[in-house]
Design a protein around this nucleic acid. Structure first.
Lengths: 171, 171
DNA sequence: ACTTTAGGTCAGCCATGGTGACCTACCTTG
DNA sequence: CAAGGTAGGTCACCATGGCTGACCTAAAGT
């Protein structure tokens, strides 16, 4: 809270340690997110497309609104990306069963292939880091990151099972 | 979870766990990096400025080339940002002592104040996550992230002391 | 003296975020 | 049923922050 520099704080709350953490986060994300760039470029796609494809793949049938909540961008920005993905035959939209205003998003077979290709190098990089660090470190990694994200998203992220994001369609 | 470590394919390397990790990384970075946006906007600055100010603050006297290596962007992109920061009186450039071609970058007093303001909310968020997770989790967090970054940057990040990035100007 | 290096600069392109306004289709509710 | 809210889309436009290519200076290094 207040004086981070006083001796009362545990060592890992010292200014220097916090800065190291920030830097690790920056570099980790920089290298992790940059991994699939080449493949993306070769297909005329950008990181924004990858993110959409990734989350649609992880939560098949996710609605546009739910996806917006995850990505935290505007529907206009997402719309642009989504239209391209649909035009390229990577994503399909299915009217919601209960609420036909909704467009439930799914990857096509082509989309699934692409998703796998895109995420593969990242998966390998993360697996390598996990393997090197060990199970206990992985658990710590999760806990700290979970504490970093906004309250709102904790529930979805907390359980490894990762069900589809909760659909509040009862009214 | 103690027995996760043994076995050819430990549980924490399952597809589902890796995906959870990726998602945590995405959301963690999204919320962490987005924290200072409001303050930045109010000063007509962007995230790019924040990153530059941050690393200059952390490594006073850093050269342009070293900063480029950290940020992994082109000198044109950095130049744009740097010029603004100098024009705004937040950063100063000092010719290198050994090599007078170099421009060593430092924050001005104003720049240091801004850096502190910008990073403060992030520091608090990280400190909260650290405190909640505990010292052991923090160590795991570090180890995994360190394993994620490219070899090239490990040395600089590994030691908590965080000296200036190594200067290969022998002679 | 020549080459290489650190850094800067100009011009233009593209991706990806944003805003405001306005639209349809569908659901919910009085 | 009518009215209002909601899911989603769309158009026009703007800002940020990456990129490339070409070209420049000054200072090292040899």
């Amino acid at each position: 809270m207040a004086d981070l520099k006083s001796g009362v704080n545990p060592l890992f709350l010292r200014e220097e340690d916090l800065r190291q953490g920030m830097e690790l986060l920056f570099c980790g994300w920089r290298d992790f997110a940059g991994e699939p760039d080449q493949l993306l470029n070769s297909r005329q796609l950008g990181r924004a497309h990858h993110r959409a494809v990734y989350f649609i793949g992880r939560h098949p049938g996710i609605t546009v609104g739910e996806l917006l909540a995850i990505l935290k961008i505007t529907k206009q920005s997402l719309g642009r990306v989504l239209n391209q993905l649909v035009a390229d035959g990577l994503v399909m939209q299915i009217p919601g069963a209960r609420d036909r205003r909704q467009r439930c998003l799914k990857l096509t077979a082509t989309g699934e292939t692409l998703e796998r290709e895109l995420t593969e190098t990242q998966r390998q990089r993360l697996a390598r880091a996990y393997r090197t660090a060990g199970a206990q470190a992985v658990e710590g990694f999760r806990q700290v990151l979970l504490g970093l994200v906004d309250e709102r998203d904790r529930a979805r992220l907390a359980n490894t099972a990762a069900p589809a994001p909760n659909k509040p369609q009862h009214r």
